[in-house]
């Protein structure tokens, strides 16, 4: 993998004694979208802040585009854009000036055309002269993204970009992210919305209690670790599951009109064929069949539970 961000054995302990990161190893490939999924307090924000230079690592090494973020911070940081979780903006400035300021701060020459382009991409072009305090919450979030993109970063960190955002805007954000990926920007986003990771990420990293539990291609993760359910609708309702079918741990629907069989896609044999045969042999007539893949949410919950155990 051609890693644009490479994190090795990263530890972070705050002065208060709280240990936020415990030996994180993570490589992020150029051009991918990586979603970091984890409960509150898992260390997602600390991880991002440490890569971006807002917090200082206690131990470990971070390379961005081949530059060490501590010893060669100028080169490393100029490749990074950061969209923080909180809406932190200068309320009395105009959108245009705020975005322009960010560009200058990262050492890029003034370029009104580039700023206009970024604003357009985020549908902020008609708000360029507006003061930030006049904008809605969703617009402010877009300004934060515009600021992070003003200096043309190659890596963009989005810290919970859709926390507290309505459904429509969330979908808009996802489109923006997809657009950025198309422009070759590597994106790392943290979220605790599993559907978000499921919808836009190429890879998913699960972080809990300062450790990365798993990083994997999203589809692979879901097919390898996902459990599937087979639901069989019955023509005639039954009161109990026949003894002959007890070994399958079938779950009977409350109205007795359907049974659900759970199987592991990783297993050599899923057992679907024999279940169906045995259902037939037991005299249960099938009206319909459907299968359903379990979501990342379940994978996530299982992993976090396993860690706690």
């Amino acid at each position: 993998m051609n890693a644009i961000v490479s994190i090795k054995n990263l530890h972070k302990a705050y002065d208060s004694g709280f240990v936020a990161l415990r030996g994180v190893d993570l490589d992020i490939a150029e051009g991918e979208i990586l979603a970091l999924l984890g409960p509150n307090g898992a260390g997602k924000t600390t991880l991002i802040s440490t890569v971006c230079g807002i917090t200082v690592p206690t131990a470990g090494k971070i390379m961005v585009g081949g530059h060490d973020t501590v010893t060669d911070y100028r080169a490393a940081r100029s490749l990074i854009g950061l969209v923080p979780q909180e809406i932190n903006l200068e309320p009395f400035e105009t959108v245009e000036n705020t975005v322009s300021f960010s560009r200058g701060l990262f050492g890029k020459k003034k370029d009104p055309a580039r700023v206009a382009e970024v604003l357009k991409m985020l549908s902020l072009d008609d708000k360029a002269k507006s003061k930030i305090k006049e904008l809605s919450g969703g617009m402010k979030r877009r300004v934060l993204i515009a600021k992070a993109l003003a200096h043309e970063p190659r890596v963009l960190f989005l810290d919970e970009p859709t926390a507290g955002v309505d459904v429509e805007l969330r979908k808009d954000m996802w489109n923006v992210v997809a657009d950025l990926k198309a422009h070759g920007v590597t994106i790392i986003l943290t979220t605790h919305y599993i559907e978000e990771a499921e919808a836009i990420a190429d890879r998913v990293g699960i972080i809990s209690k300062g450790e990365i539990l798993l990083v994997q291609n999203k589809d692979e993760m879901m097919s390898q670790m996902g459990r599937k359910e087979l639901r069989v609708d019955l023509v005639e309702p039954v009161e109990t599951i026949p003894d002959a079918l007890m070994k399958y741990d079938l779950v009977l629907a409350p109205n007795g009109r359907a049974v659900t069989y759970t199987y592991d896609t990783r297993a050599e044999r899923t057992g679907i064929r024999t279940v169906l045969n045995d259902l037939d042999a037991a005299g249960l007539r099938m009206a319909d069949l459907q299968t359903q893949q379990s979501s990342l949410e379940e994978i996530f919950t299982t992993l976090v539970k396993e860690q706690s155990a």
Binding site: C52, G53, I54, Y73, R74, A75, A76, R77, S78, I80, L82, P84, E86, N88, L89, E90, P91, S102, L105, F106, G107, K147
Partner: peptide, 17 residues
């Protein structure tokens, strides 16, 4: 103090300066 108060300090700290 103002950037600290409103939180925009994050940008200064993450900038190549």
């Amino acid at each position: 103090y103002f950037p600290k108060f409103i939180g925009t300090i994050y940008e200064l700290l993450s900038a190549p300066v």
